[in-house]
Amino acid sequence: MNELITFEDFSKVDLRIGTIIKVNDFPEARKPAYQLTIDFGDLGVKKTSAQITTLYRKDDLLEKQIVAVVNFPKKQIAKFMSECLVVGAVKAKDVMLLNPEHKVKNGTPVL
């Protein structure tokens, strides 16, 4: 377990539901990754990269709802600017995306 945090610390993390609307290969990444474009409803569209190529094909990701942190500062990855961070469970270095069981409105907060 990592260091204990307070509820106030956790409340600063803005987790939201978004729908992947575009997936591109990301050959410039050091490890195999996709570039994702995600619709967060009223929060707008954000881009990120994700090392999820071993478990997901591009076609499987389109229209998939995911959970992401939307209030990190932008981060330069190669020639790409990441604007959010998708959330997943890691098993043997493979990332499985977290997603709602039922379709919800894009931008819905995760508590």
Rank of each mutant, 00 (worst) to 15 (best):
108 T>N: 05
111 L>P: 07
41 G>N: 06
12 K>E: 09
41 G>W: 03
39 D>C: 02
63 E>A: 14
41 G>K: 06
94 D>Y: 03
8 E>T: 14
95 V>L: 13
56 Y>V: 12
78 A>V: 09
63 E>Y: 14
54 T>K: 15
111 L>D: 08
44 G>Q: 10
83 E>D: 06
10 F>Q: 09
111 L>H: 08
88 G>V: 07
101 E>T: 13
7 F>T: 10
76 Q>T: 11
39 D>Q: 02
15 L>A: 06
48 T>S: 12
88 G>Y: 03
92 A>M: 03
1 M>P: 02
60 D>S: 15
109 P>K: 13
109 P>W: 04
8 E>W: 05
104 V>C: 07
23 V>D: 05
91 K>L: 08
102 H>Y: 13
64 K>W: 05
110 V>D: 00
49 S>M: 07
56 Y>I: 13
57 R>C: 07
58 K>N: 09
105 K>I: 14
31 K>H: 13
67 V>C: 11
35 Q>T: 11
70 V>C: 08
26 F>A: 09
8 E>M: 10
102 H>E: 13
25 D>C: 10
79 K>W: 00
32 P>E: 09
18 G>A: 04
87 V>Q: 07
55 L>I: 11
35 Q>S: 10
79 K>H: 12
43 L>H: 14
24 N>Y: 13
88 G>A: 07
38 I>V: 14
84 C>W: 00
59 D>L: 13
16 R>F: 01
68 A>G: 08
82 S>W: 04
59 D>P: 04
109 P>Q: 10
10 F>V: 10
39 D>V: 00
60 D>E: 15
15 L>D: 00
59 D>V: 14
16 R>A: 01
38 I>C: 03
39 D>T: 01
11 S>N: 14
86 V>L: 04
103 K>W: 06
105 K>M: 12
100 P>L: 11
79 K>P: 00
85 L>W: 03
50 A>E: 01
35 Q>G: 04
31 K>D: 09
38 I>N: 01
97 L>M: 05
96 M>Y: 09
51 Q>R: 13
98 L>Y: 04
78 A>F: 04
42 D>P: 07
5 I>F: 07
24 N>K: 15
14 D>Y: 05
44 G>P: 08
111 L>N: 10
20 I>M: 03
66 I>Q: 01
2 N>W: 03
104 V>E: 08
98 L>H: 02
71 N>I: 06
98 L>Q: 02
